[in-house]
Simulated assay, not measured.
Amino acid sequence: MSKKEKKTIPAEQLELYEKLVKSIPELEINSTFGFPYTSLNGHMFSLLSKSGFVGIRLPKQEREAFLEQYNSTIYKPEPGPLLKEYVTVPNDLLADVETLKSYLLISLAYVKTLKPKPPKKKK
């Protein structure tokens, strides 16, 4: 792939991610950075990479349980750094909206406990 070619998110993963986020009425998908994500008070808590992998931010105990139960890994978007509080959602689990909805609700509750980030000043 040349540098000028942009990687596009696989349509099936995008559709499943949108369905997951829409399962919680108070959530909206943002795409400020060129990929879909959810955030609250300046804290991102779920995202879909351009490679088509979903990451969900979880508190330590739930994160460790998820990693073990689903034989998952800590999330690393491509390109980008390892996101230590995020788990990688296995693609076969992505279609299970009810199961993932419970994790997304845990994630939302977790970011609600974090101190809001101040808005960035425009230069």
Rank of each mutant, 00 (worst) to 15 (best):
G52R: 13
N41T: 07
L93V: 12
L108K: 02
M1A: 14
L114E: 11
L40Y: 08
F33N: 13
Q61I: 15
P79H: 08
K112W: 04
L40I: 09
G34P: 07
P118Q: 14
V89D: 00
T88F: 02
P90S: 01
E18W: 08
Y86V: 06
L93Q: 15
K112I: 06
P81V: 13
G80A: 03
I106C: 15
T88G: 05
K117A: 03
Q61Y: 12
H43V: 04
L100A: 00
P59K: 10
L104R: 04
Y86H: 10
L40A: 10
E15W: 03
E98S: 09
I29A: 02
Q61K: 15
T73R: 12
I106W: 10
N30P: 02
P59I: 09
E85M: 06
P77L: 04
K4T: 00
M44T: 09
S102L: 15
Y86A: 00
N91A: 06
P59M: 12
I106H: 09
K122D: 04
I74P: 07
E18Q: 07
L48Y: 08
L94P: 07
P36F: 03
L16W: 01
Y17K: 04
Q61N: 14
Y37V: 06
K7A: 13
L16C: 01
P59H: 15
L27E: 02
L104V: 01
L94G: 02
G42Y: 03
K123V: 08
P36N: 05
M1R: 10
T8K: 13
L16R: 01
K50D: 03
K123E: 09
V21L: 13
G52Q: 11
S107N: 02
F33A: 11
P116K: 14
P77E: 04
E5N: 02
V97A: 04
P36V: 08
T32N: 11
S107R: 01
F53M: 13
F53Y: 14
T8G: 10
Y70S: 09
G34V: 08
I106A: 10
D96R: 05
R63Y: 02
E12T: 06
Y75T: 07
K123C: 01
A65F: 13
F33Y: 14
P77C: 07
K121G: 00
E98Q: 12
L40D: 06
K6P: 05
I9G: 11
E68D: 15
S46R: 14
K76C: 06
